[in-house]
Design a protein around this nucleic acid. Structure first.
Lengths: 237, 237
DNA sequence: GTCTATAATTCGATAGAC
DNA sequence: GTCTATCGAATTATAGAC
């Protein structure tokens, strides 16, 4: 389906330009002239490759979702089928975050514009996303089945909140601050071990008493806190 | 500043209509005709109260932010200055979530449209949001100062991720599923105590061994899981 | 204050030259 | 394949009657 041939790479160039534009400016802020300019063309020429703006937009978010799916699935698969389900979860979190923050304009565009899209497009896209949601559900359910998770929480709600923390990061992330990997470590630490100190009254204790924290590629640190990270959006309300 | 007098309540009616429209349809999906119709007027009449669409929009998100700020601050204040900082945090989470999901079209509109707004408006609004961000920072810092929180995490990142989980809920929440209060309890449980079972190898244990979980108004339950909550958006990528 | 026009602009989309 | 030129629809904003 993907010819390397000729100038159907032009089509790719247009898609790249569109993904970048949408990722930066949202949906309402981008018109076809801007996309065309970024792709080094004139607006009218786009119609040689796409029948409508909607078709172009839908392709962008379709690729964006697929990119996130691939990256996340792969990050879990390389761990092997018998890996600790908690480790798998941490890997998925890191992969998802790295993809949407640093690797794919398509994936970040998907998140930033989906809510603004015409209803038919959104409906179709949400259908596609169910598979991805199911993938996360399965990760959580396996962790639960292994007995590693507490049993008093609704995993669907957990999944929504977890993905929310991940996805909202496209609204505040800045390359000047923590890396996506560091942010992922923070989130994993937060939701797996919790923010509360483990021995509230005890003396100083070793850093990783509880479980499942040694596996991460790096530990969350307060490092970098003091430098150029007073940034952009401290997203509030 | 707020005259109860005469038909400057018309102005209020317009703002209410606008907030509801923006909350439901995003920014791009709403035109002045729709807002006017909902306010039982014609589009041209809006200009008697607002000089431009931008002015109307900015007022909506300004009120939305203020509403969230007030509700959250109040929820913390009623606990008294000497309350457990963890309890304060839980109260703020519940108040923020209830406000954006159930109580204020303004607050949810703020979250849903901010990313789509013209740059000058967004810039001004982000300035206002810093105060709210500082409020959450202070909540977290007090909890940390009390020694209740682990010390290896950057609280700024924690705050962003926490607010992200909260704010993204406007994209998937449905009144048919868990209540805002139940979702808040889930999030508090997740980020404070963590998802991991406390005694990974032990026998069944009492539900609240660790700390700070008794205070919540209700416990998260898996209840309701089986019924009408297969809903809308399982927001993925 | 609210209405009915309508002006002015923007933007997606098309037509046709090259 | 890409361009220029332009149409047509939608939408913000204004003018003026009532």
């Amino acid at each position: 389906m993907n010819d390397e041939s000729k100038s159907s790479r032009t089509r790719q160039r247009i898609l790249d330009a569109a993904a970048a534009c949408f990722s930066e400016l949202g949906y309402a802020g981008v018109n076809l002239r801007r996309i065309a300019t970024r792709a080094k063309m004139k607006a009218g020429s786009l119609y040689y490759y796409f029948d409508s703006k909607d078709e172009l937009v839908e392709e962008v978010i379709r690729v964006g979702l697929e990119t996130a799916v691939r990256a996340t699935r792969r990050a879990v698969q390389v761990l092997g089928p018998d890996a600790d389900p908690i480790v798998k979860l941490r890997a998925a979190i890191a992969a998802h975050l790295t993809t949407i923050l640093a690797e794919s304009d398509y994936a970040s565009a998907d998140l930033r514009i989906l809510a603004q899209l015409p209803e038919p497009i959104r409906k179709r896209h949400m259908e596609r996303q169910r598979q991805y949601g199911a993938f996360w559900s399965s990760l959580l359910q396996r962790a639960a089945a292994s007995g590693r998770l507490r049993r008093d929480l609704n995993l669907s709600v957990v999944r929504m909140l977890l993905l929310g923390a991940l996805n909202w990061s496209v609204e505040w992330y800045s390359p000047d601050g923590e890396t996506p990997g560091e942010i992922a470590e923070h989130l994993s630490a937060m939701i797996l071990d919790g923010l509360l100190a483990k021995f509230t009254l005890g003396a100083r204790h070793a850093d990783d008493t509880s479980s499942g924290r040694r596996e991460g590629k790096g530990k969350p640190r307060s490092a970098r806190s003091a430098r150029g990270r007073r940034t952009w959006r401290d997203r509030g309300s």
